[in-house]
C-alpha cells in the first residue's frame, strides 16, 4: 500500500484565458472520483514557482494545455520526463520544468522520481474571459481514464 498522498496530480492553467483552463477543469473533474492516496491540486503558477508543489511526492502527473498546431484540437499528448527536452513550443506552464527537475535532483530534494504529463491540444489561449472550445471540453472526459490508469499503474508498481 502506498503511503498517503505520495502521488500528486497538478492541474495547470489560467481559467480566465479560454482553453488555458483545461488543465484546471480536468483535475477538478477528477476530484469528484475521490481517488484515495492522491493529492489533486489546481494552480495558475508556472516555472520555478511550481517547485514547492512537488516536494514530498514520489510521482507527479501534470495536466495542462499545449499548442503545437500540428495535431487536431482536443488531442491528448502524453509525455514522460524524458520527452520534455524534445518538446517544441510547449505551453508557458511547461517552461522551466526540465530546469526545475534538474535543480531538484542537483539539490537532492525530496522530489518525484516519476513524471507523467497529459497536455491537451488547444486552439485559443489568448481570449480574456473566453469560453473553452467544444473539442477541448470533450477532451476533459477523455483524459480522466488516462490519469486514473496512470495512478493505478504507479500504485500497482509500489504495492
Amino acid at each position: 500500500m502506498l503511503n498517503e498522498s505520495k502521488i500528486l496530480v497538478l492541474g495547470l492553467g489560467n481559467d480566465l484565458l479560454a482553453d488555458d483552463a483545461v488543465g484546471l477543469l480536468a483535475v477538478r473533474e477528477l476530484k469528484k472520483q475521490q481517488i484515495s492516496d492522491v493529492e489533486i491540486v489546481e494552480t495558475a503558477e508556472h516555472g520555478m514557482a511550481l517547485l514547492d508543489y512537488f516536494i514530498g511526492f514520489d510521482s507527479a502527473i501534470l495536466v495542462d494545455a499545449i499548442q503545437t498546431n500540428s495535431v487536431p484540437v482536443g488531442t491528448i499528448h502524453e509525455m514522460d520526463e524524458s520527452d520534455l527536452s524534445e518538446v517544441f513550443a510547449p505551453s508557458p506552464h511547461f517552461s522551466g520544468l526540465p530546469e526545475m527537475i534538474h535543480i531538484a535532483r542537483e539539490m537532492q530534494l525530496d522530489f518525484p522520481q516519476r513524471f507523467k504529463i497529459f497536455a491537451i491540444e488547444v486552439e485559443d489561449v489568448l481570449t480574456l474571459g473566453g469560453k473553452i472550445s467544444p473539442k477541448v471540453r470533450d477532451a476533459i472526459a477523455r483524459v480522466q481514464p488516462k490519469i486514473a490508469r496512470q495512478i493505478r499503474l504507479w500504485k500497482e508498481d509500489l504495492s
Binding site: 517547485l51 514547492d52 535543480i103 542537483e106 539539490m107 537532492q108
Partner: peptide, 25 residues
C-alpha cells in the same frame, strides 16, 4: 541561472531558500 547561484552560495543555502519559501507559502 539558478544553478550558478547555488554553485556560488552552496547547495545547503539553496535548500534553505526553498525551505523558507515553502514555509511562508
Amino acid at each position: 541561472n539558478i544553478l550558478g547561484v547555488l554553485g556560488k552560495v552552496g547547495l545547503e543555502i539553496g535548500k534553505e531558500v526553498i525551505g523558507l519559501r515553502k514555509q511562508m507559502r
